[in-house]
């Protein structure tokens, strides 16, 4: 290694100025131990740095020294108090200061406690809401699961209601359980009913329409009681709340029950 070149490279000064890289520092620290010339060069450079810094001083206001000594005085070995004074006065003063500090600290802590308590309550409430929602979803899941079992069981059937002329593309599917009691309307593609109107399901029994219920609360699907002896089902758009007799020109879908 060319020690002379190394010394002249500027690495030592970079190191002292604190701008050398980590690798360079490590290298320098190992080389200085091996080569006394390098160690000597470092010491010379330190003199240089000290010299440069000493020639670019910036005056400091005298209050700074006082401020620094005010801080470090706490660390200095204390001198014994020469005159003995009534001890209780100091004690009382110190107690009062401590009391005030303690009250202030208590107040701060109490405020903090209140905030934290509110936070905890809010979180608790949030948690309860989430739990309730969760229960609701679970209950719904149970119902759906039961329905699914019921409608998948042997003997259950499917009634497809197709669009009547002029109501293109619409379709609604009714599922009927084996006992012919429950009717579920799934796969409903009817457009949203305009305000003030509602869809109504009709059963056709011996050629006559029988009200089977309104299409309300259809989440995730509508549920009806099956009408005994129904030969077919149809959906019409009626005034809100339903009609006694279907408005035939407002019929959307119609499907026969497979015997």
């Amino acid at each position: 290694m060319d020690i002379h070149a190394y010394i002249q490279s500027g690495i030592i000064e970079s190191y002292l100025l604190g701008i050398a890289g980590e690798e360079e520092e490590k290298e320098l620290n190992s080389i200085r131990r091996q080569y006394p010339e390098v160690e000597a060069a470092i010491q010379r450079a330190e003199e240089w740095l000290h010299g440069v810094a000493s020639s670019y001083t910036a005056p400091v206001p005298s209050k700074v020294k006082d401020r620094i000594f005010a801080v470090i005085n706490e660390d200095l070995p204390s001198r014994p108090v020469a005159v003995i004074r009534p001890f209780y006065r100091y004690f009382a003063a110190a107690s009062l200061i401590l009391l005030i500090c303690s009250l202030a600290a208590n107040l701060i802590l109490y405020k903090k406690y209140l905030t934290e308590k509110n936070n905890a309550l809010a979180l608790q409430q949030n948690n309860q809401t989430l739990l309730a929602n969760n229960n609701l979803i679970q209950a719904k899941m149970n119902i759906v699961s039961n329905d699914l079992k019921l409608m998948a069981a042997a003997g259950s059937s499917k009634i497809i209601l197709n669009a009547v002329a002029g109501k293109n593309q619409l379709q609604t599917v009714l599922l009927l359980d084996a006992a012919k009691q429950q009717l579920l309307m799934v796969g409903n593609s009817l457009p949203n009913a305009p305000t003030g109107k509602q869809y109504q399901l009709w059963a056709i029994v011996r050629g006559k329409p029988v009200n089977a219920g309104m299409l309300t609360g259809c989440d995730p699907y509508c549920r009806f009681n099956a009408v005994a002896g129904a030969e077919a089902y149809a959906v019409t758009l009626e005034k809100a709340g339903g009609s006694d007799q279907p408005t035939l020109e407002q019929m959307y879908v119609f499907g026969k029950v497979n015997s």
């Binding site: 000290h50 810094a53 000493s54 670019y56 001083t57 910036a58 005056p59 400091v60 700074v64 020294k65 620094i68 000594f69 470090i72 005085n73 660390d75 200095l76 070995p77």
Partner: peptide
């Protein structure tokens, strides 16, 4: 923890370090 020595240190180096 000699306060006097610290005063000496301050008097000798504060201006350079402030620079």
């Amino acid at each position: 923890r000699d306060g006097k020595a610290f005063g000496y240190l301050y008097d000798h180096y504060s201006a350079a370090l402030n620079g």
